[in-house]
Design a protein around this nucleic acid. Structure first.
Lengths: 209, 209, 209, 209
DNA sequence: CATGAATGAGTCTTCATTCAT
DNA sequence: AATGAATGAAGACTCATTCAT
């Protein structure tokens, strides 16, 4: 009986459902027509909802975009976090899991990469990003640094510091994402993953491959 | 005395000067107010010129943006190219020069990074970029691959292939640029440069530090 | 007292009503300030509606103008058509009705003549006219030719052919319209009508006066 | 040797030459791109002259258009006037000459008809026309009425009055011009001429064919 | 909760006119 | 007498936001 969670869009639906629909339509619109083409008309048409709903469920368009960014950041964090609890994972396994998450299809696809870089490209959203989502980035960096420290200790590596490695990793993550977005024919998720693993095997040869 | 070449703006000026002024004002506007805030009104006000001049010196606003992108790409290329001719440079020196250019203040500053990522962020301009400027990127990659091949041969390295190294370098370049733009307090040109050199000393230990 | 059909303008109104209002305001604007003065600002002000409504109810200004032309052509056709069905009318009566319609106040007034000639005067609209409205003209000519054939047969006239007469009539219609528009003090609907009837009594003396 | 009247455009030329060039370019521009496309840029490019010249030789664009209209009206008048002096012409010959002039290729061609109706179509120019050129029209009508009176007296016609005939003729002139402009494939100068002559043979059978 | 017509500020673009050369 | 870069008002069009239903 309970069709509360039905995806079938009823004439009325709980606020949460509508918000999710709108956020999804926003991402699709941005990826298809760019940030400038992501008008409320385009977004609501994509969602199959009425124009007025955005300002009803969100305070403004800017709020919708901010929520979209937040959604993306949290979805990403959920992905790499879920493997960290596993007791049977070594630090290297966990680092590997984070790298995997970075290029997981759920996160690393044209639809979502378009949105990320649309936000990065607009100064106003960079600021918004820093204030709402950067702590997630920092959290991941902290975790990675911790893992690298363990790995370095285990392997007794004399190379770059844990901080150095992590900053290089972060740089690689973003840069490879951009390459995948710009040249989808030349750069693939798989290739990018290989690139990062190749780097890790260079710094931590005893742990990676 | 002779102020024929004075920068003092006369009522009329050669087309080239006006175009340069407008391109510069475009970059400043984008970096200050984002791509969406870079209206012709804002740009011409920034340049201290009248509104109608853009459509006089460029066919349209889109043309102005395309030219801005082209200017940026060419300025960048000129920078890394100028060191490649020097006969007294070893391949490692030349590679080093390219890395230096990537983080040279003339190229790697907030004003210009903002513009790069503004273009990357908008699907329409990504396409425009691919059709007008990507050959410059590819050219640089070719050159880097060649240099890496020489270095690998010289050092008899058994690590990643020249192609692999270069793709990682390209990824690092873009990712570090983004980090500098996003977190200017945490990431500096100098630090980024160190990051890349650190990577190079890992893959080519006999050549770099 | 039910004011459901009241002309009092509610905040929202059916699309058809708005379209009609805008078309009407377009005709008034053209007749008052010429086609070049018929700006969207002028039109919407005339209609007492907001500027953005034109692009909401019509795709563009050009579409509005095309619809205006179409409206005019159809209104005109409806006028001369309505008398053609009457069984008690002779061919001469019907031809007379068509002539009457041509100079009927609903069609032949400064407001609408201004619009007709505004369209005729601009090459682009002449083309638009040919593709959308000329079939109405041709239809009328066909009907007139048929009627003239009947009249010629009835009266056994040896003068110009039905086609000739109709082409002369069409020429007279347009020319008299233009004269009424240009010299409203010298040329009136009534006079024009007399002119045409005078011509008809010359070619078909047994049928007209 | 005297090349004062040379059509070769020297760097400087007498004002009269330049004015004629600009008027001609105006007519060509209007006929090619419509009145709205007849910008000063288009006109001066068509004339092969510099943009600033219009406001130099004419007070304003409006003045140029008014002069163009005047030129057209005077050229037309010169055409029908030149036959009126001939002592060997009967009134019917003279009337015939006026009709011929109306459809003479120098006057009745797409380039010039486009201009006439462009002016008729714009209220502002209708007014300008009335104040500068209508006396030419009226003059022609006077002449025609006089001729018709003579013809009626000669033939002892009992049909429409001279005034009536002339008004019908004027209507036919304008209407046939419009038809030629609108449907160049269906209506030709020759056909139009035949139409008018056919009308004249109806009212003045003893004089025309 | 939901709708979508209406609003009008803001954008790009065009173009007659000016003016230093 | 001639040039054409520069100006800025005015145009069509877009779109986030509002609000009566």
């Amino acid at each position: 009986m309970a069709d509360a969670t039905s995806t079938k869009s009823a004439r009325t639906a709980p606020a949460k459902t509508r918000r999710r629909q709108l956020i999804d339509a926003t991402m699709i619109s941005i990826s298809r027509h760019g940030i400038s083409g992501a008008t409320l008309t385009a977004i609501t048409k994509e969602a199959g909802l009425s124009l007025g709903l955005v300002n009803f469920h969100f305070k403004s368009k800017d709020a919708l975009l901010a929520e979209t960014l937040k959604f993306l950041a949290e979805e990403h964090r959920d992905l790499w976090m879920q493997k960290l609890d596993r007791a049977d994972f070594t630090p290297a396994d966990k680092l590997c899991a984070i790298v995997d998450a970075q290029f997981h299809p759920r996160v690393c696809n044209r639809k979502k990469l378009s949105v990320w870089f649309a936000f990065f490209g607009e100064g106003a959203y960079r600021k918004s990003y820093r204030s709402t989502s950067s702590e997630i980035d920092l959290e991941r960096q902290e975790v990675c640094i911790e893992l690298c420290r363990d790995i370095i200790a285990e392997g007794d590596y004399a190379g770059p510091s844990a901080e150095d490695v992590v900053q290089t990793l972060e740089g690689l993550f973003d840069g490879l994402w951009l390459n995948i977005l710009m040249y989808p024919d030349l750069f693939t998720r798989k290739k990018a993953l290989g690139q990062v693993m190749s780097y890790l095997s260079l710094v931590f040869p005893k742990h990676f491959d």
